[in-house]
Design a protein around this nucleic acid. Structure first.
Lengths: 142, 142
DNA sequence: GTTCTTGCAAACTGTTTGCAGCCGC
DNA sequence: GCGGCTGCAAACAGTTTGCAAGAAC
C-alpha cells in the first residue's frame, strides 16, 4: 500500500489531504510493524510537527473506517494498530518485554470459519492473541 | 468451583474473608456467564450492599491473580470477565447486540501450541475473539 | 492488637467531543 | 468562499491509588 494510493482513496471520498494527515500517513507507512497512538504523538513532537493528539485519534479512526489500518491487539488497556493489507495474521505477545511476533495459520482460520458456520454467525474480523514469554525472555528467566 | 473452596484458598494464603468479598464471590458464582465490573457495581447497589467500585476492582484483581477469574474479552475499551475453571473456550461476539457465544475447539488450541513451539514461545494464556453478526441480528438486517 | 481491607476522593490513562478559527480545494 | 479539518480544552470512561478509618483473625 503506497502513500499515493491512500491519498487518492481519501480525496476520491471527499476527504482532504492536509499536512497533518500526510505526516501521520508517512509515519504509518514507514513503521512496518505495530504502533500505538502515543508512538505517533511522540514522533510528531520529535519532528516538531505539532499534530495534536485529537487529530491523530481522528485520523486513525478514519483510516480504520476506510480499512487502511487495523486494531490488532488490546493489551494493558491500550490499542495497538497496524497497517492493513499485509494479509491477515495473528500475534504472540511477550508479557515480559512486550515483543510482538506475527504468525499466520490458514488452518486456524479455516477452523474459525467452521465454528462460525456452526453457529450461523457472520464473522467480520477476529483477533487471536497469545500471551506468554518469548524465547529471549525465557533465557533470562533461569 | 464452589464458594467454600475459593474462600479456603483465600484464607490459606493469608487473605481475609470480608463481607464485601463474600458478596462479590456470590455474584460471580451465580453469574454463570460473562460479567463486567459495572455489572457488579450495579448489582451491589441494587441489593443495598454498598461495596465500593474500588473494592470491586481490587477483589477482581485478586481473584484474577489467584486464577479464579479470567479476563476473556476486550471490547469497546472494556474488560469482560468470567469465572475460571469451565475449561478453556473462546468467544463469538455480536457487534450489533453484544451477545457472546462461547465455543471450544481443541483443534484450534492444538494448532496454537504448534505455532508457539515453532517460535519457542511459552504460552500463558490466549484470547480468540471473533467479532461479527449473530444469527438473530442477521435476520434483522434484511 | 496486628494486619489486611475498605471507602472515599483524587488522580491517571486512553479516548472522544464541542467549538472557534483555519485551510484545502 | 464553502465545508471539511485542526487545536484546544474540557469531558469522558475505565481503572488505579494514597490514606485514614474499620474489620477480620
Amino acid at each position: 500500500m503506497k502513500l499515493k494510493q491512500i491519498e487518492e482513496s481519501l480525496s476520491s471520498k471527499g476527504f482532504k489531504i492536509t499536512k497533518q494527515r500526510k505526516q501521520i500517513l508517512d509515519f504509518i507507512l514507514k513503521t512496518k510493524g505495530h504502533f500505538e497512538i502515543e508512538d505517533i504523538v511522540y514522533k510528531m513532537k520529535k519532528k516538531n510537527k505539532n499534530v495534536s493528539r485529537a487529530t491523530i485519534y481522528r485520523t486513525i479512526g478514519l483510516l480504520k473506517e476506510l480499512g487502511f489500518v487495523e486494531e490488532v491487539i488490546k493489551y494493558d488497556n491500550k490499542t495497538i494498530y497496524e497497517i492493513a493489507g499485509k494479509g491477515h495474521h495473528d500475534h504472540l505477545i511477550c508479557i515480559k518485554c512486550g515483543k510482538i511476533i506475527e504468525f499466520e495459520d490458514k488452518n486456524i482460520e479455516k477452523l474459525q470459519n467452521k465454528i462460525c458456520k456452526k453457529y450461523n454467525f457472520k464473522p467480520i474480523y477476529h483477533r487471536l492473541e497469545i500471551f506468554g514469554i518469548c524465547e529471549e525472555c525465557q533465557k533470562g528467566e533461569k
